[in-house]
Design a protein around this nucleic acid. Structure first.
Lengths: 350, 350
DNA sequence: CTGAAAGCGCTTACAG
DNA sequence: CTGAAAGCGCTTACAG
């Protein structure tokens, strides 16, 4: 461990004094490539400087540096909630990648509340972050437009909006994978628990599913798509609506989120239906729980860590003045017991 | 939203120039109590300053301020993993409380790896955080001692070590509550899935359980306590060990963590045992899943948000030079189906 | 190759 | 009540 020995932190000036040279020389050396002196000083001086810096455990004061360079090397991250496993994992990716590039990341929760999003962004900006990674973008609203107009550097993560730079899972593809899987298993009557309509994750997964389903020859109407909250309660409520609609129940349910899927599974059970037997269930995100449930849940695996890492790379490019294309990382389907068997015969028979 | 209008951020000097007064006067006003001028300037000047500051959306540069004040208003938080629901929720509490007091929090993962803990602490210190909230303290190791010696201000959260300031759940009490509950339900043969021995959470919950169990007249030997990882795989493995030990299986299992409990439930099922019927299971933390499982899990509810908030209050006191006592917040038991029925008769009969 | 100065935006005694 | 200066720790042209 470095510095803070005895309370006093060692500064550039301390090193210079001890070496009998000018602080600017020390600074120059410490900023030149780590082996060559690179015109910053003589080979000999450079070595003495680096040697002493190591010995004294010198670490530059980032606050002071940023005052001059006008860069804080700070990244602000906004997520709906950090206690959402999906966002927590993406944040781990951010944190790793940021550290590798000499950046530090801040994270704050917005609870998907537009006012809170603005408040948190203001806090981040007041802290003078170099850029923002926004993990809670809404398809509606004018926030992103305003940020653009104000030239605040940002990228989206997890959810995308139009052509703003973003790092997401290819959610359309994810939805398609589920459609193909359920179709192959012989299902013909399906419902979608679609999530929140303001989130591209929900919209894309749903539309990917529907368009692929139809292209396979399947039928699905608006009634078969239920928008809901992303949590277990939301999934439970949506499933209840589907099961009590008066129509024959679907033989398969696609919930665009594992938590919603778990809620739906609970509701199916309450109606005396066996998951994986009477009704197939598929979730999304492949959170660590999915595989551990009593009836393991089929789920679309999304590369969450990589999405976080990608977001950091994109924001770097934005900071360099580029306009990177949205990046959509490929998901894969993890088939488990909740949807492994073929559809009930009565249905296949039709 | 404030500042960053057109790229240029408004500074103290800008305000002063526009008002035709000295920057120091502006600074003084902005630091005096929000209504009275408080000797900083005349009532009239103060009003003009505040008015313009609001109008221009002035927000002081914290980097510049910290350079003078030698305080960054930054808090460093280290956790094993943010994707652990328990820590994520505690962090939400930290974030809230920190914001209320004008602080911002950084969080980093250590994966409970001693080397990584040191590395992350160094990164935090290099960023010049005012203090540290350590959520991954190990009972062994010399890290805390070293931090103390170096006079780095810190408090522990979630896990405690000796008399260092800490904000935790009262885990001993939590263990006792479980012992009482299982005893009352008529269980006499119990096992504990005890978690990691380096974590006070594991040790305290286990020891609270054991001592209360014995004080009630119960018998429990070292063989009945299995140390394990905190995750589902750990719980599963521990349960397997218990069920294949050759002894008659216990009628109740206390896992010191919900995830370990879920793993154990899976293993019980694999052995043809019905949770809540043949074997009671109790977890710890009452994570959002517990209540949503097909067989809802009895769990000790720990006030995670409050623990995070308390950690912030404690670090503030440490920063003021005080030495606050460890704070242990009270848990409550949430009884659910996994342990709601009485112990199997054969056992009660003994 | 190295020194010296200026300045980033702020705060805080110190005068008057 | 208000101004002026100094300085926090750093970086970066500019000389020489």
């Amino acid at each position: 461990m470095g510095k803070v020995n005895g309370g006093r932190t060692v500064t550039l000036k301390d090193l210079a004094r001890e070496l009998g040279i000018h602080p600017s020389t020390v600074s120059r050396v410490l900023h030149s490539g780590s082996d060559v002196a690179k015109g910053a000083a003589s080979q000999a001086t450079a070595e003495r400087v680096r040697e002493l810096a190591r010995k004294r455990g010198y670490s530059p004061d980032p606050q002071a540096a940023s005052l001059r360079t006008r860069q804080t090397k700070l990244l602000g991250v906004i997520v709906p909630r950090l206690s959402d496993l999906v966002l927590a994992l993406m944040y781990e990716g951010i944190d790793e990648a940021a550290a590798e590039m000499g950046y530090s990341a801040f994270v704050m929760n917005s609870r998907d509340d537009p006012e809170e999003q603005r408040r948190k962004i203001d806090l981040m900006l007041a802290r003078r972050v170099d850029g923002l990674i926004i993990g809670d973008a809404h398809l509606d609203g004018s926030l992103l437009q305003e940020l653009s107009a104000r030239k605040v550097p940002f990228v989206l993560m997890n959810r995308r909006v139009q052509e703003y730079p973003s790092a997401t899972c290819d959610d359309v593809l994810g939805g398609e994978l589920v459609a193909e899987h359920l179709w192959e298993k012989g299902h013909r009557r399906v419902s979608v628990i679609a999530g929140e309509p303001y989130a591209s994750t929900a919209v894309d997964r749903t539309s990917g599913f529907i368009s692929r389903w139809r292209s396979l020859g399947g039928q699905i109407s608006d009634d078969d798509v239920v928008w809901s909250r992303f949590d277990t309660a939301g999934g439970r409520g949506a499933a209840k609506g589907i099961l009590t609609s008066g129509k024959p129940h679907p033989t398969a349910l696609f919930a665009v989120n594992d938590f919603a899927a778990i809620g739906a599974m609970g509701e199916l059970r309450s109606h005396g239906l066996t998951v994986g037997q009477d009704v197939a269930v598929v979730g999304y995100n492949d959170t660590s729980l999915a595989a551990e449930l009593p009836i393991p849940l089929t789920s679309v695996h999304s590369p969450m860590l990589d999405i976080g890492r990608t977001a950091v790379h994109l924001i770097q490019r934005v900071l360099r003045g580029e306009q990177p294309e949205p990046a959509a990382l490929k998901p894969t389907l993890r088939v488990r017991e909740s949807s492994a068997s073929r559809a009930p015969a009565e249905v296949r028979a039709r």
